[in-house]
Design a protein around this nucleic acid. Structure first.
Lengths: 338, 338
DNA sequence: ATATAAAATCCAATCGATTGTATATTAGCA
DNA sequence: TGCTAATATACAATCGATTGGATTTTATAT
């Protein structure tokens, strides 16, 4: 009574073979409509539910995709996961979520484990330490489709789902310039991460376009404390700084904490723009101007792409880079009353 | 070459039976040390990795636990998930994460799906709409261990991992009273959720102990907008309100938004205490006094408990309620300079 | 050296679903 | 009616690992 009914139970109950039951439940044309109806009715009656383990074993798939993010509790990633879960769930896929905590070693172990677990595909946003791509190459070698989202690296045979970081960096910086900032510092992440490189390039391009000669870049891991310290060192080096473009919101918050402690007025003395539109940016005072990137959309798109590759592996040859739209959300932290 | 080696490949390579290989890899006493060594060496050499699907099918387990939370992107839940993932990963369990989005219907479907997926256990923090427990009873009937965390309900045969909501509610209210508040309103969640009931009871108990006669309670879903509206209606009904104890931080933030817009001073005119210590509470101005509840710890404890029940199902008879410590974090939003 | 116990290994069924092939049934047509 | 073609169903192997029971090998005692 306790154990679930199987196709064999259905078959026995109807005096037919289990293979016919299996085919009927999979809507195979090899079974007549009449028997199909009988079988489906009986399945309902017995409360039959397909055993996915058995099915997947036989079909040599896992119906599972692996997801690796730096940290679940970062809002951007938790909303990306929300998007991934939604899309995967609808397609009947399970999702294994893992976090690298920004450590390469952990990321390597996780990826190994996911390969061992025979995931059908992998979505990853790499850690800040990920300089070495061997573990990712191993995924490709195992013939497991791999899609990067947000933090990507240029790896042959992988697709990416991103926002246009260059443009966002450009827009953020342009906005500061238009507010009258002349000395804008940029807080960047590790340089080997493409997204930070792109945001930085956007920053540079805007400065160039508007013929702003001042340029100052501080790289860090962009944690709150890094933003705080970067702000200190930036002002020490250049007391006349009047604008900050931070490559994430958290570091921007750190910078604001320091500025407020020093009674430096935001935005009048120093205007600030962050990146990601974390919930915190809306609440902090003054509210933080930032780039809105929808984790939800990015997660959904990345999953759709991955599932497509899983469904027809040939498609994996045509790698692509999908851009998800994003836009500058202007709030008080950058609005100088000129 | 592409396909992974199996125990049969190892067996063939060594001229022995696959059952011996299986036993050796599971460190069974039925295999001699000598052959064990040979087998393990060969497994290493071939890069063998156990196929969990096959193993689990045979053992009739899934090595998977299901997790249902209202919303992944809420910081408390994403950190609980972090704790769950950690604990589960160490024990070799996969985790399926699902979100009810506070909808009962979705929660029911999810739980059904998880039963069908044959999860070995279930962790759940119920939605705000969950008045009906049939779907949860079905889990118990299917002999799947079930542990509630944070938002629980009294169901025979389930354990809970919680913080002491009553005490927290008491402490929060007591703190406001000690700051000189005489007219404290409480923003509560749906009454059928135990945690809100307990927080409310703590509020009442503190009022009673200090012989404060004013009492006003507004129930809502505690979203930001609810906090905003509750604040309006509270002040309309009782313009002399000088304290707010909100059962979550988000609603407290909503209330603060309204107060600040009305130029009502926090904490001097109205002191505020929230609940959960979301990141936002530290950054908002004035910084929000709140109850710190570690999602990480709660997630870890809940998982440990669940895994224990999975390992020895008899233990499930002894249900228990584990209390994780939590404490009042006093910040500016409630510190009146008396 | 032989009988017996103990240890090591092998055999075969099993978990539940899927799928290629073979057989049985029905329908269509001359 | 008899024959072929088409349709429907049954049989049996398979996915990879596990496990109870049978068998073989080795060690111990007589």
């Amino acid at each position: 009574m306790n154990s679930k009914p199987t196709i064999h139970d259905i078959a026995k109950a109807l005096g037919i073979d289990s293979s016919t039951v299996s085919r009927a439940l999979n809507d195979s044309p090899r079974v007549s409509q009449k028997t199909k109806k009988k079988i489906i009715a009986k399945a309902q009656e017995l409360g039959y539910q397909r055993n996915l383990l058995a099915s997947n074993l036989r079909k040599n798939v896992s119906r599972t995709i692996g997801v690796v993010v730096p940290r679940i509790s970062r809002y951007f990633f938790s909303s990306a996961i929300q998007g991934i879960e939604e899309a995967a769930y609808l397609a009947g896929y399970n999702v294994i979520i893992c976090q690298s905590l920004e450590e390469l070693e952990r990321e390597q172990k996780i990826v190994e484990g996911l390969i061992a677990n025979r995931v059908d595909g992998l979505l990853i946003s790499i850690s800040m330490e990920t300089l070495n791509y061997n573990h990712l190459q191993a995924v490709i070698n195992s013939d497991i489709p791999l899609v990067f989202f947000d933090r990507y690296c240029n790896l042959q045979g992988c697709s990416n789902v991103l926002i246009d970081d260059f443009n966002c960096g450009f827009n953020a910086t342009e906005h500061l310039i238009q507010q009258g900032c002349k000395n804008i510092v940029h807080f960047s992440g590790p340089q080997y991460l493409k997204i930070y490189e792109n945001r930085l390039e956007g920053y540079k391009a805007a400065l160039k376009k508007y013929e702003v000669t001042f340029q100052h870049i501080i790289s860090s891991k962009l944690m709150e404390v890094d933003g705080y310290n970067s702000m200190i060192s930036a002002l020490e080096a250049h007391p006349n700084i009047d604008g900050v473009f931070s490559a994430n919101d958290v570091a921007a918050v750190g910078a604001m904490t320091y500025l407020k402690a020093q009674q430096i007025k935001i935005p009048d003395d120093v205007a600030i723009v962050g990146f990601s539109n974390e919930p915190i940016s809306r609440v902090i005072e003054p509210a933080l101007t930032t780039i809105d990137q929808s984790g939800l959309k990015i997660g959904e798109k990345a999953t759709a792409l991955l599932l497509n590759y899983i469904a027809n592996k040939e498609a994996s040859n045509e790698t692509q880079t999908v851009m998800v739209d994003s836009n500058l959300v202007i709030r008080s932290s950058s609005k100088k009353m000129i």
